[in-house]
Design a protein around this nucleic acid. Sequence first.
RNA 1: GGGCGCGUAGCUCAGUUGGUUAGAGCGCCUGCUUCACACGCAGGAGGUCACAGGUUCGAGUCCUGUCGCGCCCACCA
Length: 887
Amino acid sequence: MEIDKVYEPQRFEPAWAQWWIDSGIFRAQPQNPGRRFSLVIPPPNVTGVLHMGHMLEHTEIDVTVRWHRMRGDNTLWLPGTDHAGIATQMVVERQLSAEGLNRRDMGREAFEERVWNWKYESGGTIKKQMIRLGASCDWSRERFTLDEGLSRAVRETFVRLYEKGLLYRGEYIINWCPDCHTALSDLEVVHEETQGSLWHIAYPVNGTSERLVVATTRPETMLGDTAVAIHPKDPRYTHLHGKTVRLPLMERDISIILDDMADPKFGTGVVKVTPAHDPNDFEAGRRHNLPIIQVIDQSAKMTPAAGPYAGLDRFEARKKVVAALQEAGLLVKIEAHNLSIGKCQRSRTVVEPLVSKQWFVKTKPLAEPAIRVVEDGRIQFIPDNWSKTYFEWMYNIRDWCISRQLWWGHRIPAWYCSQCSEVTVARETPQECAHCGCGALTQDPDVLDTWFSSGLWPFSTLGWPDQTEDLQAYYPTTLLITGFDILFFWVARMVMLGIECMGDVPFRQVYIHGLVRDADKQKMSKTKGNVVDPLEVTEKYGTDAVRLSLLLGAAPGTDIVLTEERMESARAFANKMWNASRLIFMNMERSGVGAWLPPASESWRPEALPDSLAVPLEDRWISSRLNQCTEQVNRAIEQYRYHEAAQTLWHFFWHEFCDWYLEIKKLRFEEGSGLNEHWRNLLTVYETFLRLLHPVMPFLTEELWQRLAKGIEDRPISIAIAPYPQFKAEASDDVAEHEMSVLQAIITTARELRSDVKADPKQTLDGVLVARQAVSELVRGQLSALEKLSRMKLELRFSAGDPVEGVTRSEAEFDLIARVSPEQADAQRGRLEKEIEQLEKVIANSSRQLGDEKFLSRAPAHVVDGIRLKLADYEAQLSKNREALSQ
RNA sequence: GGGCGCGUAGCUCAGUUGGUUAGAGCGCCUGCUUCACACGCAGGAGGUCACAGGUUCGAGUCCUGUCGCGCCCACCA
């Protein structure tokens, strides 16, 4: 059989496997309990995978499940959100394939350049310019969206919310990005701590000689001031209430208002009020019916209302304003001041609060039931503390600005009548105004926030608003796995919209995994350049190895550190898997064992050898261990403790199956008796383990399983649809586990002994094994295995007998004596002394506890008994060691 | 300002309801190319679990405080 000595994933992982590191184990489960945790990997005929945006754009490799389904065109489709980036990439990928190219061959940079060019050519920039010129735009933007079904769902939702009065269009102050030329939701604004200044400006009070000094971080906005505010109880200023001040530079009289917004302890206690350019001031303006004067426009240039400063950039205007104030002697002082300024998440431009007409969702009525379902436990967060974060946000939620002035996205299904100015909201393009009946309708040029449509994902992907079979079967789904970075953006909105549109929660549990971070624990980001490219590392280490290292790091509540070292060690495990399999396959060939699979539905209880009717100890042992492993893995997966599952699998295979079981089986094959039964037992365990490991390493296990099962008819087409191993109480074998642990102890002791006396590795040592009565049968039966694995020629005794020259090591069940020269024996003393020291320590510890009345009376019996037993062990061993040392 | 979390071996981290000599991977040291695997095998060193109190028969684990670090949210001009 030709199998490479070193694991080379490229040889058997299909090209699309590289896209596949983040699913399989993590999936939403259909409600049908019979199909719980059926593992899915794509059948062999799948030729391409379109992946979620986070892989391509953000390159945060989150270990995420996404419910997916097959499309008729042989493409595995992971329905994601409708980010324009994905849509664009999909279009470009199609173009490439028409040209006989693919993105992997052309490399990441070339591909991204091409994506960018296409975006550019297709109108992104043109649209921007058109907006700047004030032209209307009639682009059919929906051509960029992924799915007509989703567009329908979006329109349906919009209309429903509108009809229920949960949507409104209003003039409010919103976050505006002057570079992207669009409104942003609060969440899309990132705050950055910046060193700024606090300018103190004097406003002369009319009719007095007094001046009110205001403190501001944005002096240029003073051009749009329509009031100054003082605290109603601030004794310094209350006498000025009712008077007006003269707004410097603009020479406009504005009123003095009383408002809580002015904090007497901050600055001078006087606040300038610019309703057009500050959210706080906007609210204050509403309260006091102040006029709104917009002095900065959508491109962050000063408007004609700014008088002499019109046309200037806002930062330029700031300098000029400050200079003019200085000249007028109205600039009292400038203080250094740290403030956090809002920047656009996408373009990093400083956000300008602007008053404009936008669509908003009333979120309070949506948030209330969304809070309740988490309180009631109908949705459960894992780890649970995320629900606190969720509540925190939900309780303080503010209305959600959903209109965007971007060139892609779902267009808002609202039309404005040029006759009566009323709004018509409709699922399909209306022919006439719903209010006056005229036909002069213009559709709202804006599109919806991408998270609006993303929030519909749990049911829009299932065919909603149609009542499809999918919807019946899969909504609500059981589990969502995601990163906390989109808890508010996405998860919270799915919950709100799911309850609103479907009347039920979209999922029962939300598993929040950590973010993947680099070796320095930094969040991966393109700008930092610390991105681990999944394509590169899967190419280098293999998909399964990358996946395994992600899983090993995926402890709940912690971030996942992805380093080359971890991936190397995961690859080493894959290689171990590969080579152990090689050993098995080569020996199968040698023994003339053909393809073979155990009956999948049956227990893996090992079979007896015909000659003795005895079941080989190693088979009973490994079966019991595998059963334990199965239980632990199943439980770990159920509890989302993936790192534990992966580690358990690792330990079982490497340190039990390979280190002990295969080593013993190799000896059996040398002996050459009862081969069929040995094979049957070995392959049963091996095959079961492949199935157990499959969700963690889908490709490797599929490959090995297919080789094992080659030529067998009437079997599952893939390991993926073979049943997942389950714990079987009757498969536990405590006797075998104990007996095996004795054998392991003897062999380990022998190896330590060899090492201590610096025995030549090639030399077989002579020795005596004194076994206690309880294990006499065992060691007699397993003598040849003991001798080979310990490289000792052992004389078996069941009582001390004649004294033996050499070094002695003792355990509860046996003494092991190696015949060595006195010089070699001396080398052993160090270990004995150290062991004695340790034993004395733990004995003192245990004795102290057992002598403590309070401990005896209050500790549970099993703890006390456990310590008693241990103490007896320690003492026995201590005396043996002292004896050995005194020889 | 509010909220969440972290500090355990040189490094990266596990440690489930408090209980018997605190674990893993990587790295390090010694020996070994033994015909599955040097991406390996065998053996080994290395931790007063950030610090200080408290609860308890018993604390890495629970409570309080201190120090150090990280993240999220927030309209202090």
